[in-house]
């Protein structure tokens, strides 16, 4: 529970394979949730490979980091970087010059309980892989978002991660399909969202299309959900709303998951909506 009496949620953003969009997702969802009035902290748990600060555009204001907090070298409030563009948004940066072993699971759990007292949403950007770094990122979380692209290695590794998250009793565990290319799906050259869902058998929380604006926004350090209305920005906004419990329909059959007769007929007649 945070200071205003709202139940806090610690959500880890994770994946099996690296480079599939965890950091992008964490930054955009954090901004979107804060903009809709929630008190949010984005935590970079990718110790040694700090990235969330640059993707969010907050790198120049980092003084202390997560390791300083868990080691007691500074207070939590000193390490939190406030985002001046959005009310109620903070970043807890990772250490860049330390290794994953600088923090233990116990310390991460403690850190999460501290953050629960201040924030409604605690989004944790996790490192790739299934080693200690992953476990540390996940240990204090209630729920998980698993990011996968519609590609064989990514889906395969997502399956492994889902198994681990289930064994750690995280719930709900929900899927973000990232970098979907509608044109390739139409040509039968890319797994569609239903294929991925068939295989992984978990709930979908959203689909983010391949979108050049993601790269541009990372270049500028301006998360898309700050203002943009590009397809990826809209997708992240919808995911944030679903995360907050809103019923948001899944648009466009080949872009997001639309099951049923209409979708089937559309597909049959090759209608591009």
């Amino acid at each position: 529970m945070d200071s205003s009496g709202v139940q806090s949620r610690v959500i880890v953003i994770t994946s099996g394979k690296g480079g599939v969009g965890k950091t992008t997702t964490t930054s955009n969802l954090s901004v979107a949730l804060a903009r809709s009035g929630h008190r949010v902290v984005a935590v970079d748990a990718d110790i040694g490979l700090r990235n969330l600060d640059v993707v969010m555009g907050l790198e120049n204001r980092v003084v202390y980091n997560l390791i300083d907090v868990v080691e007691g070298s500074c207070k939590l409030s000193q390490a939190l970087v406030r985002d001046k563009r959005v009310d109620n948004l903070f970043l807890l940066p990772a250490a860049q010059t330390r290794t994953k072993d600088a923090v233990s699971s116990g310390q991460m759990e403690e850190l999460c309980s501290m953050l629960r007292e201040e924030f409604e949403y605690i989004l944790i950007d996790s490192p790739a892989g299934i080693e200690s770094g992953f476990r540390n990122a996940v240990v204090g979380a209630d729920e998980a978002l698993v990011i996968s692209t519609p590609e064989v290695p990514s889906v395969r590794d997502a399956d492994r991660i889902i198994g681990l998250l289930e064994s750690m009793e995280k719930a709900p565990i929900r899927l973000v399909v990232n970098r979907l290319r509608t044109s390739m799906v139409r040509e039968g050259e890319m797994l569609d969202v239903n294929d991925v869902l068939d295989i992984l058998a978990i709930d979908l929380i959203g689909v983010v299309p391949e979108d050049d604006s993601v790269v541009k926004s990372a270049n500028r350090g301006e998360p898309l959900t700050l203002s943009d209305s590009s397809p990826a920005a809209l997708a992240f906004q919808r995911i944030a709303a679903r995360l907050a419990g809103d019923e948001v329909p899944f648009p466009k059959f080949d872009e997001e998951n639309e099951r049923g007769l209409l979708a089937g007929l559309r597909r049959l007649f090759g209608k591009k909506d």
């Binding site: 590609e151 799906v185 040509e187 039968g188 050259e189 890319m190 797994l191 295989i199 049959l268």
Partner: peptide, 17 residues
């Protein structure tokens, strides 16, 4: 599209399964 399922996607799905 309707008559062939020859794209690489079906191969991908089968291999994943």
């Amino acid at each position: 599209r309707f008559f062939s399922n020859g794209g690489s996607k079906s191969v991908a799905k089968e291999r994943l399964q």
